[in-house]
C-alpha cells in the first residue's frame, strides 16, 4: 500500500480527474484520492451546462473514461487531511489513517457551495419554497420543478450574489458563474413550465465568457426573463403562503415589493472544507479570500509555496468547467517538468 507513486491527486472533481487522466496518459503512476464514494465532484449534480446547455453527463462521461487507466488507482472515501515532506518525497495522510507517498502532489480540492442558511434574511431552511441553485439543478434532473406542496410555480425569482460579493459573510470576491447560471436556469424553467414568469435580481450582470452575453440576450428575447437591478434585502412569507421579496428597483429609484412562488438563491463558491483542513495540516498558504494562493497570479498559477505541490482548478479561485480543465492541464505540464528535472538531478 505504501509504495511510492509519481503523483498524488487530491480531489476527484473535474480538475482532479482531468489532471490524473492526463498524467496517466503520459505514463505516470497516479493515485486519485476522492473523499466521496464516487468521483465527479459537483458536476454529478448539475443538469445542463452553460453556455450551450449541453448535458452535464456528457462531460462526466468524458472524465470517467479519462480516468479509466491502468496507471490510475482511484481511492474513493479517502479524505487527505495533511501533506508533509519536501522535494520529491511527500507523505500524505488520510482521515482514516491511510498513508500515501508520492513524488509530486496536485491539490484539486475544489470548492463548496456557500451555505445559504447563513443569509438568514433570505429564509433558506425556514421557508420551504426558498431553494438554492443546486436544489434547482436537482429538480431539473428529477424532471420537474415543483413547490414544496407539489404545486407548479407561476413566478420564480432568482437572487444573484448569495454569499458572493458580500462583506457580511466575509466573501468579498465574485464567484463568476452565478450570473450565467441564473440566466441558464431561468431559461430552463421556462422550458419546463409554460407561462412561468421569471425575475433575476442582480447587482451587476457579469457576462464575461464566450457566448455568455448571447444567452443573456436570448433569455430576454426568447423567454422574456425580467432583469431587475437591485439586491434583494429580505424574503418573507405572507398570509397566503406566497413569498414576498423586498428590493429596490435602483433604476426606477423606488422600493419594489413582489410576491413570488419560489425563490432561487444563486449560492456562490467558497474554499472547500476539505481544502481548509488540508491547509490547516500543511504549510500551504491561503489568500484573503481563503482559497489557496498561487505562487504567481500570471505566470505560476499552478504552483504553491511548497515545491512539488501544485494546484488545479477551483481550490485557487472560482472557475467554470472550461477553466478548471485548462487549469488542470496546465498543472500537468508543471508536474511533468518538475518530475523530469528531479529525475535529471537524481541521475
Amino acid at each position: 500500500m505504501n509504495s511510492m507513486v509519481d503523483v498524488l491527486v487530491i480531489g476527484g472533481g473535474v480538475a482532479g480527474m482531468e489532471a490524473a487522466g492526463q498524467l496517466a496518459r503520459s505514463g505516470y503512476s497516479v493515485i486519485l484520492a476522492e473523499k466521496e464514494p464516487l468521483t465527479g465532484g459537483h458536476l454529478k449534480n448539475w443538469y445542463h451546462l452553460f453556455p450551450d446547455r449541453r448535458d452535464g453527463n456528457e462531460v462526466g462521461e468524458y472524465l470517467d473514461n479519462l480516468v479509466k487507466n491502468k496507471n490510475i488507482e482511484i481511492r474513493n472515501n479517502t479524505c487527505i487531511t495533511g501533506i508533509t515532506g519536501r522535494k520529491g518525497k511527500f507523505t500524505a495522510t488520510a482521515s482514516d489513517g491511510q498513508v500515501v507517498e508520492a513524488e509530486a502532489v496536485i491539490v484539486a480540492t475544489g470548492f463548496d457551495l456557500f451555505d445559504s442558511r447563513r443569509k438568514e434574511e433570505y429564509g433558506y431552511g425556514i421557508y420551504p419554497n426558498v431553494i438554492t441553485s443546486a436544489d434547482l439543478e436537482k429538480m431539473f434532473r428529477n424532471g420537474s420543478v415543483k413547490l414544496a406542496d407539489g404545486g407548479v410555480p407561476a413566478r420564480i425569482g432568482f437572487i444573484h450574489c448569495v454569499g458572493s460579493r458580500d462583506e457580511k459573510v466575509g466573501n468579498l470576491y465574485c464567484s463568476k458563474l452565478c450570473c450565467i447560471t441564473a440566466v441558464k436556469q431561468a431559461m430552463e424553467v421556462h422550458e419546463k413550465i409554460s407561462g412561468v414568469k421569471t425575475f433575476c435580481f442582480y447587482m451587476d450582470m457579469r457576462m464575461g465568457g464566450a457566448y455568455y452575453e448571447e444567452i443573456y440576450r436570448e433569455a430576454q428575447e426568447k423567454y422574456g426573463v425580467s432583469f431587475i437591478r437591485g439586491k434583494v434585502s429580505e424574503v418573507s412569507q405572507g398570509y397566503n403562503g406566497r413569498l414576498v421579496i423586498k428590493a429596490e428597483d435602483t433604476l426606477a429609484g423606488r422600493p419594489l415589493r413582489m410576491e413570488l412562488d419560489m425563490v432561487v438563491l444563486m449560492a456562490g463558491m467558497e474554499m472547500s472544507d476539505a481544502g481548509e483542513i488540508l491547509a490547516g495540516k500543511s504549510s500551504l498558504r491561503r489568500g484573503e479570500n481563503r482559497f489557496f494562493s498561487t505562487a504567481d497570479n500570471h505566470t505560476a498559477s499552478n504552483r504553491s509555496n511548497m515545491k512539488g505541490v501544485f494546484y488545479a482548478g477551483t481550490c485557487t479561485a472560482p472557475m467554470n468547467i472550461t477553466e478548471s480543465i485548462s487549469h488542470a492541464r496546465a498543472a500537468v505540464t508543471e508536474v511533468v517538468s518538475y518530475l523530469r528535472e528531479k529525475k535529471q538531478r537524481d541521475e
Binding site: S233, E234, S236
Partner: peptide, 9 residues
Amino acid sequence: THLTPGIKE
C-alpha cells in the same frame, strides 16, 4: 427581526 425570519416564524 425582519432580517432574522427564524425568530419571526
